[in-house]
Write a protein that binds this DNA or RNA. Sequence first.
DNA 1: CGAGGTCTTGAAGACGATCAACAAACGTGG
DNA 2: CCACGTTTGTTGATCGTCTTCAAGACCTCG
Lengths: 239, 239
Amino acid sequence: MKNPLISQLERRDTLSPEERSALEGAISKVKEFAPDEDLVRDGERVNQSNLILEGFACRYKVLGDGRRQITAFHLAGDFVDLHSFLLKKMDHGVAALTRCRVAFFPHEKLREISERYPHLTRLMWLLTLIDASAHREWITGMGRRSAEGRLAHLFCEMYLRLDVAGLTDGLTFPFPITQHELGDALGLSVVHTNRLLGRLRKLHLATFLSNKVKIENWEGLKELAEFDPTYLHLNSEPR
Amino acid sequence: MKNPLISQLERRDTLSPEERSALEGAISKVKEFAPDEDLVRDGERVNQSNLILEGFACRYKVLGDGRRQITAFHLAGDFVDLHSFLLKKMDHGVAALTRCRVAFFPHEKLREISERYPHLTRLMWLLTLIDASAHREWITGMGRRSAEGRLAHLFCEMYLRLDVAGLTDGLTFPFPITQHELGDALGLSVVHTNRLLGRLRKLHLATFLSNKVKIENWEGLKELAEFDPTYLHLNSEPR
DNA sequence: CGAGGTCTTGAAGACGATCAACAAACGTGG
DNA sequence: CCACGTTTGTTGATCGTCTTCAAGACCTCG
């Protein structure tokens, strides 16, 4: 089975055989995490970064009174905390949403790559930049989109990312989270999230049921979300 | 006068003399921008990155109906669009808030640095990671903080960043933006922003007047904001 | 000095939160 | 395979925050 990180990178640029093997060689071990288990905890000092090989995870922050905000969702091929390579200390937690198979990249190995493979380094840097780009889109949504638009936008984003990773089934895709978590991502209460899902269903745009999203009307959903995939930077070019 | 980028980096790690001169040598020219002028436009393909030497700028996105969201504020020493080095195409605009003196770094030169100076490359990468970290804090605020808390948090962040850059005057700092722009940053209407400023004043926490913020009660403001500066990653260590 | 931008305040209304109660689904042990 | 507790989802009612609309004051700069 192909390393999904390789595919993730090759979607954006070409990798040489040596670069591919350098990446493969940087994995120290592979571990499984149970649903709801933390891959990394907030505030922790870490010396490795985690790549998801299988499963879903999210990054989140918790405020004083326990209110939680999910800042990103991650799927196979995503380097959930590559930024810890240079930041050293986590400024948020990472939790498994489902059972996850995760590859560990010791920072020491990443450092070696950064010394020896400038192009590969740029590509890893790129991954963190795409992350940041998605963050900006998220911010824009939280600040200026309606709750409904935000939900639609999230569905559009997840559909596209999963599709590119070959994890969709027609217009249906897995999204294994609870409505509570969905609310935590959108900055909404569970109750309101539930009502919004009902509305999307009634508008025949999308249905969310038993951990799957089925898009009924892609164009309509995109329009409601004002979805423009540019921010995902899915094109390949020399970097 | 010292290049504020050098200070920005040396706050996080040590630079060798060669690294410093490599950075200095990567500047192609310095240009002035007028207030409200765009340094870069959304969607543009660029081949240089902009470093602010003097002045204030912001990054923003505009939605279909003209609603605007500001995703970040920038001051002297900030590399406002370093990410365009690898993303190539802008996914947002950058506008000057005041007159700005800006240094251009051609991507070609940045590429050379990335080929020759691994450590310096990691430090530039780090800058973009800190940006992303601030984005996550922003998202958390938009989703889970009260409007009042968000405003207080923004004041705390700006105070600390300006203080570190030596641009504060005691507990007073320049923040040359209109209430409209402040609202665009917080995801609020101008009207509500105005009322919130009134409340912070009445609570004797901070006053915003003629482009300056005066913090009256730092501890109180921090508490209201639940401000924890970890996410700014202001510590120095080997990277 | 006038015009446009910025700030301020009031009033009405929309959107989403909270509280509450119940239904459905799930998983665990008997 | 069922009984039971826990988690997840659903719906109604009420309340608060923030938006929108509107109008007037202030200010700044040609």
